[in-house]
Computed example of a mutant assay.
Amino acid sequence: MRIVVAGGTGLIGSALVEALREADHEAVPASPSTGVDTLTGEGVAEALAGADVVVDVTNRMEFEPAAILEFFTASTRTLLAAERAAGVRHHVVLSIVGTDLLPDSGYLAAKAAQEELVRGSGVPFSIVRATQFFEFLGMIAQGSAVGDRIVLPTADLQPVAARDVSAALADVATAPPRGGVLDLAGPERAPFARFVRPALAALGDGRPVDEDPATGYFGATLERDALVPRGEARIGATDFATWLSAQAARV
């Protein structure tokens, strides 16, 4: 099976390409570094020629609402138009648990718009919504900094290892289109601080970590279960303690 991975040189995409190749699929990483730009359209038609599946894991760490909306919608439109022209039979997109519940977050609102484009495209699709990655806990802390301390929401997280996200995407990409959503989360659910505090300690960051129920999350006010699956979900194999031990060993 020929599977093109848009964003295939990043954290999730590179591991996904590796997993697909190990399963004897022809996995093609598509990103600006490989000559494929989903914003300008450069190289997209050539990369998708003969593709059976496209997996979209493109991302940009941009939180200005208009800018991130433009990124996700323009990139997605480019991919979907090229897929229709190439006869691609399955579009898989990586999204976020809670995307449809937090319209006040510019980033999540942009992901919701991306999902809607996929649903209305006419290309058979699957949407994989993952919870926050263990690997992004440090970034979450930085976004929650108030002076010399970290102030976190009291809502729950159920973070997942990036490698488990790539594994789930590989399974979905090589199965028939779901025509709907698969939620993916890690094995443990607890408030933000349960994960962020030890992750910072492992990085040698000694800033105090406080909790405040009024604290928002990238522009959104959180209910306790806004960022965790509310129904059936696939659970990643890697628990937080195992991941944390591996990170500490690298420091």
Rank of each mutant, 00 (worst) to 15 (best):
G138L: 04
E188G: 01
V55W: 01
P198L: 06
F192Y: 00
L20F: 04
D37Y: 10
G179N: 13
G206A: 11
L152Q: 05
N59W: 03
I140T: 14
V160S: 07
L108Y: 11
D183I: 08
R178D: 10
D104E: 15
E232P: 12
A145T: 15
R163P: 00
S105F: 07
Q132P: 08
I235F: 01
A170E: 02
L137W: 04
L16V: 04
G41D: 10
A113Y: 00
A175H: 03
F72E: 04
L48K: 03
G204V: 10
A15T: 10
A237P: 09
G43D: 11
L137Q: 04
D104H: 06
D56G: 13
A47V: 15
A30P: 11
D205T: 14
P208W: 01
I150A: 03
D225M: 05
I235E: 10
E116L: 06
V228K: 08
H91S: 07
V146C: 01
E26L: 08
P229Q: 05
A27S: 05
F133Q: 10
G143P: 05
A67S: 11
F136P: 00
A110W: 02
L137M: 12
V146M: 01
G122V: 13
Q247D: 01
A167S: 10
A162I: 01
V196R: 03
V251S: 15
G7W: 02
A81Q: 13
R2K: 15
L39K: 03
I12M: 00
A109S: 13
L152E: 09
E42D: 11
L152T: 09
D183G: 02
G41L: 02
T58L: 12
F195N: 01
E64K: 15
V57K: 02
P229A: 10
A246F: 00
D239M: 02
T34P: 06
